[in-house]
Each structure stands twice: as structure tokens, then as C-alpha cells.
């Protein structure tokens, strides 16, 4: 029993089982009288026009891209942060250079107006 991930795996199973059980009990107890009006899409009383697939701002995608770059960066930094206190001083500067290069990217995106919502 070396592997702690077995415990996490069991936790996932139980964590799924409890909400499923709650929904199943509710489905068993609740009334089932569907009708067309009740099941129509809720839009404050007005009838829905078209379907829910509306065009979104491209800006969402840009922010997701910037996020992706920084997410990968933090993943690289985690082992560095854990080992830092056991490493020589220049290791700190290596990490700082790593962060500065990426912050330069953020500044570039900022100056190019990519971080504006409008």
C-alpha cells in the first residue's frame, strides 16, 4: 500500500457516489408531471428566439491563451519552489529570470492592448 493515489481514487468514487445518491433519491421522491410549458427554456417569460449557441466575444479566447501560458509557467515553477531552500543562490536567479521573461510577455500583451475587454 505504497501508493497514496489509491486513496484519492477511492475518494473520487465516493465523491461521485454521494451526489449521485442525492439526485437518485430526489428523482425517486419527486413528482414527474412534465409538460411543454414547464420544460421550455427559461428566459424571463419571453419565448426563446434561436438556440443557445450565440457568438461569443473573441476576447474570451485571448484571455484563455494568456492563461494557458502562465499556467504552464507555474507548473515549471513548482519543483523549483520546493527545492529552493536546498539549492545554491544562483538557482534563485535562474527562477527569477524565468519569471521575468514571462512577465515581459505579459507587458507586451498589455502594451498591444490584448488585455482590454472592449
Amino acid at each position: 500500500m505504497q501508493n497514496p493515489w489509491i486513496y484519492i481514487g477511492l475518494f473520487v468514487l465516493v465523491g461521485m457516489f454521494i451526489p449521485i445518491a442525492a439526485i437518485a433519491i430526489a428523482a425517486f421522491l419527486g413528482p414527474k408531471k412534465p409538460n411543454a410549458i414547464k420544460q421550455s427554456t427559461y428566459e424571463c417569460g419571453i419565448e426563446t428566439v434561436g438556440d443557445s449557441w450565440i457568438q461569443f466575444k473573441a476576447q474570451y479566447y485571448i484571455f484563455a491563451l494568456v492563461f494557458l501560458v502562465f499556467d504552464v509557467e507555474t507548473v515549471f515553477l513548482f519543483p523549483w519552489a520546493v527545492a529552493l531552500n536546498k539549492l545554491p543562490l544562483f538557482a534563485v536567479f535562474e527562477g527569477i529570470i524565468f519569471i521575468l521573461i514571462l512577465l515581459a510577455g505579459l507587458v507586451y500583451a498589455w502594451k498591444k492592448g490584448m488585455l482590454e475587454w472592449a
Binding site: I23, A26, A27, A36
Partner: peptide, 28 residues
Amino acid sequence: LIKEDITPVGADVILFNLAPIFSMMSVL
């Protein structure tokens, strides 16, 4: 528990039901 469970028309039934389960699971 005793409320009626309404699934709107056009909903993707499997994903619609999985979402609250995943939401709770991510916290647990």
C-alpha cells in the same frame, strides 16, 4: 428532495446531469 426535477427541452441530458455531480465532487 420532493421537488420535481425538470430537464429543459434541448438539453444535453447526460452532461446536464453530470455537471452538479462534478461540481460537488470537485469540492469533496
